[in-house]
Nucleic acid binder design. Structure first.
Lengths: 342, 342
DNA sequence: ATGTGCTCGGAAATCGATTGCCAAGTCGAA
DNA sequence: TTCGACTTGGCAATCGATTTCCGAGCACAT
């Protein structure tokens, strides 16, 4: 059916109102004072014709598009999804439009997404780089052209500002808790997610520094790896222990698989996550995890982007995470929290 | 630090290569045959200068931007996230760039997202409208200008093509299963998600038609409502029954809360979801659910958009969902459960 | 030798909005 | 009355790429 209506331009409005297109522009933007009658007439014409601005034309002339881009490795990670949602709100409030693109966990797609955003002359870019080394080229290309912030994962030597949580501090909180809850002689296991993303590497290294005797397993940032890791542990005849996962999604997979195979949490195995999405109620028992301060992170990103170039020295913002006590590490009746003192 | 490099235009490349910008355009796009020497020179100049096309300029001239937009109500719903991810792949393969914007579960934000996309002259729009009636205006505005497809939820009388799963058929699968697994005399409960989105309403109505004696509760599409609904049920002193949730996220909340309060699944309560994201391993026990055929849906969306206007009659594509048997409705022994290693 | 047709580079128009500049008009002050 | 300051509308340039059109140059056939 639908005959598409072709768009109304300023020319059309100008003709309809009997003025020049300059006047239309000025009436709509209010960029200069003008005769109220003329303005009124223009506004009515625009209304009548259903005029809507062509952002491409505007952006081409003004040399900026009021859009900020976000590139993330994968929508399916709930932590990234939560970040995208919150970041959208923050930017909306600041008058920007946030458009999100997934890299589909693929480097060439990530590169493509970056150059597409750059080609569209967006205002700024927030990126969760997939790979600690391989993403550098795309990242630097972006940063050379527009304000760019790395988030959550970083490419180390890029000189591109970074916002993230203090993974080391988070791991210290976890390690302390692990010492509190792990019975003498039981295994401590760290289930990581490779070393190609900086957050995975940082968490793993911090944990290795604090608890070198732990068993380290490496996989990927997803639920399925949690399941696999659980099966691996059981195949090794581990009968109990405390498991630290590098991310909540992994922890959820671990819990689910362990329980499906008859192990009790926290009696047999204790499980600790990282991110804080586990607190939203997916997990059973409620996951003990380290919550990343999403709100503060988003605020920091906005801040960095807004004052880009003004304070180049503060190129790295690490925010403090917080331990959230669930029921996956301590057997307790209610949410009341008491560190296992004795 | 970063002095941003200002962008290289075709003019720059043309000067460097000693040709006109027409030739640069033609060399880069290959739109016309030309002297190989000249082409070679242009390509090298572009390479040397690091030229990258300004998509705004191109789009303005060509009257189209090679981008398809997706607007969804909320990133945090894993079903939407999965769709966004898959749809991105499908469009990428078809040569489009998919940009995603969240409506933040808010009508005015949704409207804003639509007009921003339209203003950017994107090629086509896929939208999961938040509200069955209130989203109409924005939806129709989009459809008047560019190929537009509604997905998962729809605004009924809009005349805008729709792709979704056959909710009625899905509910029939569920109802049959409910009859199979519910003991004589036990309650059947439907935990819905309001009636302002079409999918919620359709599922609820279909279920009401098949099992009018069920207890109906209404809330929202999120985990938290699952928790609440479970508490409501327990407060009503329900001691067992079969619970059908309008979405997997709700079902996960239900399971989690019921188990946290000592109820066994499936012995005391049976839980059934809808969507299929529950099968990815978050749930324990594995959720019995109806899987929406994400792949087919995405293919149908691409199809509709590509041949927009050619087959206006097929304005509604309903795809068949499939019942996935988990362990949340039937107690089953399968080999997967290892004996407690004594 | 002249006409016909083809190839290929460049000039210029175009997409739509914004904005620097100019000129006509208004108003008040000298 | 005249001059300057100020207002306000319009012309035209501009952003960057594409594309239509034109003409120069060449080959080939008549």
């Amino acid at each position: 059916m639908s005959e598409r209506s072709q768009s109304i331009t300023m020319r059309d409005v100008a003709e309809h109102a009997g003025v020049s297109s300059s006047s239309v522009s000025r009436a709509l933007s209010g960029s200069r004072s003008m005769n109220p009658d003329v303005r009124e007439r223009v506004l009515r014409s625009a209304e009548v014709l259903g005029y809507e601005v062509n952002l491409l034309g505007r952006a081409l002339r003004q040399q900026r598009l009021n859009v900020v881009g976000l590139i993330l490795p994968d929508f399916s990670n709930p932590f990234f999804a939560a970040m995208a949602e919150h970041l959208g709100e923050v930017f909306r409030a600041a008058g920007f439009e946030l458009l999100v693109s997934s890299a589909g966990d693929d480097l060439s797609t990530e590169r493509h997404a970056v150059s597409s955003f750059l080609g569209q002359q967006i205002q700024a870019l927030v990126i969760i780089p997939k790979d600690e080394t391989e993403s550098r080229e795309a990242l630097e290309a972006a940063s050379r052209r527009i304000p760019t912030v790395q988030f959550d994962r970083r490419v180390a030597t890029s000189g591109v500002p970074y916002v993230g949580c203090d993974n080391r501090a988070g791991i210290e909180l976890i390690a302390r808790h692990v010492r509190d809850v792990t019975p003498q002689g039981e295994r401590v296991v760290f289930v990581g997610a490779g070393v190609s993303s900086s957050s995975a590497r940082e968490r793993r290294e911090a944990f290795a520094a604090l608890m070198p005797d732990a068993l380290f397993l490496d996989g990927t940032f997803d639920v399925e790896w949690g399941h696999q890791a659980a099966r691996l542990l059981l195949e090794r005849s581990e009968r109990g222990g405390t498991i630290v996962a590098s991310a909540d999604v992994i922890a959820l997979g671990l819990q689910s698989e362990l329980q499906a195979r008859g192990r009790r949490i926290p009696q047999d195995f204790r499980v600790i996550g990282f991110d804080g999405i586990g607190v939203t109620g997916y997990a059973l028992p409620a996951l003990t995890t380290v919550r990343q301060p999403i709100e503060e992170m988003c605020a920091a990103i906005l801040e960095l982007i807004s004052r880009d170039g003004l304070h180049p020295e503060s190129t790295e913002v690490l925010l403090a995470p917080e331990l959230v006590h669930g029921k996956s590490t301590v057997l307790e009746e209610d949410g009341a929290v008491a560190p296992l003192g004795g």
